[in-house]
Design a protein around this nucleic acid. Sequence first.
DNA 1: TACCGT
DNA 2: AACGGT
Length: 203
Amino acid sequence: MELKERIITSTEALFCQYGIKRMTMDDIAKHLGISKKTIYLHFKDKEELVNTVVAEMLSREDCISEENEAEAEDAVKEIFLVVTHLQDLLSKMNPMLFFDMQKYHPKTWELFRNYRYDYVRKCIEKNLQRGIDEGLFRKEINMEIISIMRMEQVDMIFNQVAFAPGKYNLSQVMTEITEHYLHGLCTLKGHKLINKYKQITEE
DNA sequence: TACCGT
DNA sequence: AACGGT
């Protein structure tokens, strides 16, 4: 693997484990067994490194979303796949990553926000249309409003005021909120699938 | 690696 | 004092 790629990959792993702030450029260099100077040969400053790492993670998410869409036999299943993937992702990530981004890297945070409002919302709308076409989601819904609501729901999971971290874990909150979302969305035909996939997931 | 500026 | 940057 090329050195620049190695720097990105290794930094991503460190950020996921410890957050951004706690990882100094010295730490990153040490973990790679290279000198700081070498990092600065490929990245102008820490800001640029952070940006590149996050952009890489987001572009990987694009691919996974497309895979989920193709693999799922219907729109309800697609939501289950997305949630499972998100839970897996979150379990490997230190939430500090998000807070550090917000607090110390506003440019990167904006990239992240834009991604959510452009790409993620398109995915949600596509899923809604799919579910309607398949007769699984109620066709009366306003897709724009519901897609925005769904994104806000996912944001809420991180709201530490609403969901005290010690009291609930992210997976549990995510599962509960998703189930509630599906119940408001589905037709009778869709509800049967919720129960079917729920049982499979619980096993 | 040592060093400087913030 | 600690950390980004040289």
